[in-house]
Amino acid sequence: MYDAPHTERDVDQQDIKISARKVQVYYGTTHAIKDVDCDIEDKTVTAFIGPSGCGKSTFLRCLNRMNDTIDVCRVEGDISIDGEDIYDKRVDPVQLRAKVGMVFQKPNPFPKSIYDNIAYGPRIHGLAKSKADLDEIVEKSLRRGAIWDEVKDRLDAPGTGLSGGQQQRLCIARAIATEPEVLLMDEPCSALDPIATSQVEELIDELRQDYSVVIVTHSMQQAARVSQKTAFFHLGNLVEFGDTGKIFTNPVDSRTESYITGRIG
């Protein structure tokens, strides 16, 4: 299904940040993720592509244990970050999520001010020593989220009062304010205009210097533009995983080819 020698070669280039083995996810009796093996590298952007309902979000949510909050959801298999099994009993999912940040498919700002939305994470984790420190974190995060210019005059206005695209960038800024090591982004640009999209893509490229980024996207062009690795999911299976260039120019599996050329979707 997915050819192992391929990844072996990549290991030489980059450290493996997240490694998933034989992951199964069930929602009650629905088998949403089937036997997925996947290695996500450090300082790399990995794109998840695939038709709607194939399990991209589900798999993404396994990586920071967000699936714990869904009662009917059951995860099997091994997922480790930096060699540490994240589903181990001793691991605190709260600590894990501070390390593995997430931007959700739908923007979900808190009903607080824009400032407090960004300051939420740093405050909880004690990242700022002083008010000035916090101000600086907020400004830096908003700038990196490509939304500073639009909100700098109304930091006290509620975050829920922004437009959908602005809310999404606010959520991105909120996620990077906690300085995560891995950033999971579930269709971060689906509500953004082309300018904001390219700003977010620049941000992703910049984040790659220090972090590992996983992005779910429905845009082939975006996957090709920002990612170095691409994983193609279909009906809960990881069909193909490899260098982005190779997936888009010379896919091994016929399903991958059909999808990227627009024949299944």
């Binding site: 920071n64 909050t69 894990l96 999520r97 997430m102 959700f104 979900n108 808190f110 939420y120 996620a175």
Partner: peptide, 23 residues
């Protein structure tokens, strides 16, 4: 209160009581 609000808070590494108290 929408689940997305809780998810947002948990996703930032907040505990349950922090989420309840602050969100």
């Amino acid at each position: 209160v929408p689940q997305a609000m809780r998810d947002g808070s948990y996703g930032l590494g907040a505990t349950k009581s922090e989420t309840i108290k602050q969100v």
